[in-house]
Design a protein around this nucleic acid. Structure first.
Length: 624
RNA sequence: GGACCCGUAGCUCAGCUGGAUAGAGCACUUGGCUUCGAACCAAGGGGUCGGGGGUUCGAGUCCCUCCGGGUCUACCA
């Protein structure tokens, strides 16, 4: 249990910003691991093998196990494929010569490394590992299908059940550009976690039970246009909401009437309940259309209304436990130990007795823990809701702790806003939000112009299909490729660019590889083509092979931090390494072993690019 | 007032719980297609990592402080 002491789990005061579960470290927990694992066969996570081997060697060399951790990192290619930085800190703490310590470690390590990699010590005591070309070849040979990649990656989150809450729009409103990040990042996170062995429950926590329904129902009853409702129902609902909202502001009597409609709804009035259901159905239909276009899926759609009859027990328990108190008529939770939340309450029931989203979110935490048996709950919303989720998590920890409930991990995956080119929240000229439907249509239009220009020889149907993949992919990739915690500026020119870290560049790399296999007269690669492959030799071959092996570390990093842009950066670098290889080393040469190994590199690049892009939710193309 | 996020090349951004000479793309300069898709590749210039202090063998990364921008701060979500 050498490194596990560095793991902090929620509940010990680290709260939702803790960074749990780093798989290379967890894999150390097996007793006696390390001696033979490396030599047997090359495994998916080579970094984990190295970690085991170095840790084992450290024990053998007589290091103090409590103070040593290998600290395996992917290295700058100039130095090697991986490096172990652990001796530096270890030597410092004991006032030893770091270089001498590194030499001791390498001496103990060398036998187990035979055949795997070359070792070197550099600088003040870095230990560098450079994988042997033959090992690269073995890895490429072994991880040759999506199933093999998945099976290799599955150790990362095996047996963990994640409930992921994403998208979660409000009913009766159109999806606009502000919704897309949560949808796209959420879908990618679900796919990546599932690929890495987790059992993922996708839940669309729809906002279907808010104060907006009073106005909406009043508007529906008094202002609706049946024709508009038939042609574009969601548009009409949105108009009704706006009109009703304006009417309540203009006339106190209308406001009163709208409140009365809400009271009737919440009391179970049959007519209003039916209306509510119809409104939800309309919304749901419109959402589904966009979800289908973006290939986004949910296992459940448990909206706020689902928790209506689960709220009272929450109020009662929290009150009984002394966590909640009445303040200014509302039921609230203060957190005296917190600099801010000691005075800023978490309002879990409004003074008029109605629920708000704190009420439902608490009930939701409980439901996900008990019903879904969640090991981890992941909620995606924009960063402006950070306070709310911090309060929710503080409250949940105390609540579950005092009632001896199992506490799952919790991650609020927050993200920045999408800005217009003026640096302010993106809007249309008239000041309305840009509708997602319109945005996606424009993306496809612009992509079609490009495709028409670049590939006029293709049929119209094919060009349209390509434009859809490129356009939607570009929008999606723009959302994913940037660090989610920062705001980003939306610019068509940038995201549809063919150069740089963009979807079109990656899709082009994929299409170009397909073309090589087409040239061979086959639809896709077959293993027979690589039977005589020799280990990579040229600089560009080696660089590409190393990059491919790095897929394993990238998946670990990406799912550990729930930041898809790590995978984007990796895929971009992989495509770059491929392009350099492609320009420098002709693939279809006469010499059989050379052709075989280059075709192998092509095939595996294709596999990793297509797998990776699919994890991000992008559709790839055979030609473009 | 307080809390959180952000500040890296002219512009847009990476930088993996502190590690080797801070990296990409765009733009700019130059070179490469009668040979596998040039929607590509190669090379070059361009940096007081907002300022200042501190911790450390080592700081873009951690701590303090100041400046600038954003968000949130009692019953919307």
């Amino acid at each position: 249990m050498l490194v596990l002491s560095s793991l902090k789990w929620p509940g010990s005061g680290t709260f939702c910003h803790s960074r749990p579960w780093r798989a290379t470290e967890i894999s150390l927990a097996g007793p006696g691991a390390g001696d033979c694992a490396v030599a047997m066969h090359v495994s998916f996570q080579i970094a984990a093998d190295l970690n085991r081997a170095v840790t084992s060697a450290a024990l053998q060399a007589g290091f103090d196990p409590a103070g040593f951790s290998a600290e395996i990192r992917t290295a700058d290619p100039r130095h090697g494929d991986f490096q172990a930085n652990g001796v530096l800190g270890y030597a410092k703490a004991r006032k030893l010569n770091p270089r001498a310590v590194a030499e001791q470690l390498v001496a103990a390590l060398a036998p187990s490394m035979e055949g795997l990699c070359d070792l070197s010590i550099a600088g003040p005591g870095f230990i560098n590992f450079r994988l042997k070309p033959d090992v690269l070849l073995q890895w490429l040979g072994r991880y040759g299908t999506v199933e093999m990649l998945r099976s290799g990656a599955s150790a990362l989150h095996q047996g963990q059940r994640y409930v992921v809450d994403f998208s979660s729009p409000n009913t009766a409103k159109q999806l606009h550009v502000g919704h897309i990040r949560g949808m796209v990042i959420g879908e990618a996170i679900c796919r990546m976690l599932a690929f890495c062995g987790a059992s993922v429950v996708r839940d669309n926590h729809i906002g279907d039970w808010g104060t907006q329904f009073g106005k909406l129902i009043w508007g529906y009853k008094h202002l609706r246009n049946d024709e508009a409702l038939a042609t574009d129902p969601l548009e009409e609902l949105e108009r009704l909401y706006k009109a009703a909202d304006a009417a309540t502001k203009a006339d106190p009597a209308v406001l009163e009437a709208a409140r009365a409609e809400l009271v009737k709804l919440q009391a179970g009035d049959r007519e209003n309940l039916e209306l509510w259901q119809r409104i939800n159905a309309i919304s749901s239909g419109a959402f589904t259309e966009i979800y289908r276009k973006l290939d986004i899926h949910f296992d459940h759609q448990l909206g706020e209304s689902f928790y209506n009859d689960r709220l009272n027990p929450v109020y009662e328990e929290l009150t009984r436990l002394g966590l909640a108190e009445i303040s200014e008529g509302a039921l609230v939770v203060f957190h005296p130990e917190h600099p801010r939340f000691k005075t800023q309450p978490f309002i879990i029931r409004k003074s008029d007795g109605a629920a708000n989203y704190a009420s439902t979110d608490l009930a939701t935490m409980l439901y996900r823990t008990e019903h879904f048996q969640a090991d981890a709950i992941v909620i995606l919303t924009d960063a402006r809701q950070s306070d709310h989720f911090e309060q929710l998590w503080l409250t949940t920890q105390k609540w579950f702790g005092m009632t001896q409930r199992r506490l799952p991990r919790f991650e609020h995956v927050s993200f920045g806003s999408i800005l217009g080119e003026d640096g302010k929240a993106i809007k249309t000229r008239s000041g309305d939000p840009i509708r997602l439907k319109a945005l996606l249509a424009e993306a496809e239009d612009r992509a079609l112009t490009l495709v028409n220009e670049k590939s006029p020889e293709l049929s119209e149907a094919e060009r349209k299909d390509i434009a859809a993949a490129v356009g939607i992919g570009a929008v999606r990739y723009a959302d994913l490729s940037q660090n989610r915690s920062s705001d980003y500026v939306f610019a068509w020119e940038k995201i549809l660019s063919l150069e740089g870290n963009t979807a079109p560049y990656l899709l082009y790399a994929v299409a170009r590889i397909h073309s090589i296999f087409r040239k061979q007269g086959i639809e896709g690669p077959t293993e027979a083509l690589f039977a005589n492959a020799t280990p990579p030799e040229t600089e560009t071959e080696l660089a590409l092979a190393r990059k491919l092996v790095g897929f394993a570390s990238t998946l670990e990093l990406t799912t550990q931090q729930l930041r898809p842009h790590f995978l984007c950066t990796y895929l971009y670098e992989l495509a770059g390494a491929y392009s350099a290889f492609y320009a420098a080393d002709k693939v279809l040469v006469d010499a059989e072993p050379v052709r075989a190994r280059r075709l192998l590199l092509c095939a595996r690049t294709l596999l990793v690019l297509e797998s990776g892009l699919s994890l991000l939710g992008l559709r790839t193309l055979q030609r473009m």
